[in-house]
Design a protein around this nucleic acid. Structure first.
Lengths: 353, 353
DNA sequence: TTGTAGGCGTTATCAA
DNA sequence: TTGATAACGCCTACAA
């Protein structure tokens, strides 16, 4: 008398597979989880039953007993945007976010690791997130942080969950990270410009505070100036833009040109700034790259430039893939911290330099 | 003799909260789930115990018994990119993806609904995804589809899971959607240009096939021409760009200017195309907007223009939030299809028109 | 209104 | 090597 009280959802369970294969649940479980200690003949039987019933393990049940979730939280954190001048945009609208997701999914997807996204933009969402993660709803965390001093980074780093910081160094925090060699990027730009024959380069640097602020601006700038000094070029003057926008970049470029009309190369620490510089050069009647060569940084806004902007490209997808691998390793090794990795950027040469 | 066999993970369970509050698990469960039938005094007690123990429900356990997952899959689908000319970019790098996530999270976050992201770009990932979703790992699906004829859309629509198409109409598919009124966007641009005094407008339209192809180009174009005809303006000539890139936009604009040197307004069905048109106008020595006014579409690349690009803005975040609400309603109503919604765009006036 | 008890699908611990 | 059997944390009749 098979009572068969239908489990509401018509999906097959271990029990059913076991019945079909004529073995116990335990054996089916072993086969499904690839354990070695199982008779080849039984294994064969079970595998047939699995495909016959189209069985797929129930994540919730598995998670309940193993304590693992097979999911990694992608947390996009940004400083309270309430006071900032950037209203709608936000870190999620940055192509870097999408490219990061692409890279992460490349590793996680095939392994069946879920990637729930979280956005922490204010106190409330931060607390909710922390509580959520604290409950063990993810096996690890990828933190995509826009600010250097992120309160969330610290709290997550002190927490028990494996954590990898994406695109930003950990500083004093006990966490591994995957970051870009910003200095090397600046150096790349300098070498290219100098080898091109430029002798009076200048730098449009992003703001040290306010919208678009980022310590990376300074590192890129330092890398650029380091090479210039090393190669005996004139010490490149630096104009700091008020914000990371084309308008501010144009303004900074104008100041640079006014201070030294013979400037023949401009390195902007951001593509957006470079776009503004391009506009300023146009207005000033300078030809690009004949009179002034321009190199940007990021390869984000570069797609919008006509003619194409020569720029320093960050291997965001590859970095994200490495982030995923690092995190997976940490999860496997039960919290044992993985080494951090720094990626070198590359130069994408287009029309402006 | 409290045996207290530590549950490995030190997280509080219903049981512990119940002990602290001096009630039964059932009562705690009721309070946590907001059931009305519970004595206010007990409720108070339980709530205190919950905060004291920092209790957060265990999703896996809950999911196991309810059959729900409290998570919605965000599926980003794009046609096989293998042959396409766009290598690294992809739909995820588009700011629209991030803005959509922002809007979805606005609704899902506070309700504790997870948002795992999936990327379906080839046959393998599509099948894996379908199997995954078929197993009931999500309560519903938001499909962000780049192509009009998406094989995934059809299969999901026929499946049992609640589905909402984001940013694209369903066509013949049995699914609800949230889309933009593309025609109205074109009309908006036309009205603005005409009221500005322009009399010889022209259109740079995106490609009907190939990279950046999208039926929306035509709708925007139709909306624009409809208003022009209605208001007795000259029939606007249309140049179709070879791709959705600034270079192709510049090329199309040049053709338009050559055909009619008196052209005094340009509407591009994409911001990227508009950027190219701007460059072409510059090269041709036309002042913008004095000689030729320019309006773009999307407000994506607009951030990269200097001076600012006047453009048609899509309320992507709001649309995504509505998508979330629609889906939630469908999930609550056990598959009962929700009505679709079409959003009107707005005009963002900057410097070019 | 509250508590008791059974079961969701899986893994893990034992015996056999 | 295999099979019972006991959790895992929660919800939900059902009984009180």
């Amino acid at each position: 008398m098979t009572t068969e009280h239908a489990p509401a959802s018509g999906r097959p369970t271990l029990e059913q597979v076991a019945r079909v294969a004529g073995v116990s649940r335990a054996t089916v479980s072993r086969v499904v989880n690839g354990e070695a200690t199982v008779d080849p003949r039984l294994r064969e039987l079970v595998e047939q039953a699995v495909t016959a019933t189209r069985y797929v393990p129930n994540r919730a049940a598995r998670s309940l007993v193993t304590g693992r979730t097979d999911s990694v939280a992608l947390v996009v954190s940004e400083p309270d945007t309430a006071d900032a001048a950037v209203p709608a945009a936000g870190a999620l609208a940055d192509p870097v976010f999408g490219r990061t997701v692409t890279g992460l999914l490349r590793e996680f997807g095939p392994r069946g690791v879920q990637l729930p996204v979280h956005h922490a933009a204010d106190e409330a969402s931060r607390e909710r997130l922390l509580a959520h993660l604290g409950q063990g709803h993810a096996d690890g965390v990828v933190l995509l942080s826009s600010g250097p001093a992120d309160p969330l980074a610290e709290r997550l780093a002190r927490g028990p969950l494996p954590l990898v910081l994406a695109g930003r160094q950990a500083g004093a925090l006990p966490a591994s990270y995957v970051a870009l060699d910003q200095r090397a990027g600046g150096a790349l730009a300098a070498v290219h410009l100098l080898e091109r024959g430029c002798t009076r380069p200048a730098v449009v640097a992003g703001p040290p505070s306010g919208p678009g602020a980022d310590p990376a601006h300074r590192e890129r700038c330092d890398g650029f100036r380091g090479v210039a000094a090393e190669r005996g070029a004139a010490e490149p003057p630096v104009a700091v833009a008020a914000a990371d926008t084309p308008a501010a970049g144009a303004d900074a470029a104008r100041r640079l040109l006014a201070a030294d009309p013979l400037t023949d190369a401009l390195f902007a620490t951001t593509d957006l700034l470079a776009l503004g510089a391009l506009a300023a050069l146009r207005d000033a009647g300078r030809r690009v790259p004949a009179d002034v060569a321009v190199v940007g940084f990021g390869d984000d806004a570069a797609v919008g430039a006509e003619p194409g902007l020569t720029t320093v490209r960050r291997p965001v997808e590859e970095m994200a893939a490495e982030t995923a691998r690092l995190l997976l390793r940490q999860i496997d090794q039960r919290g044992q911290r993985a080494p951090s990795v720094i990626f070198p950027p590359t130069l994408t040469v287009r029309a402006t330099a």
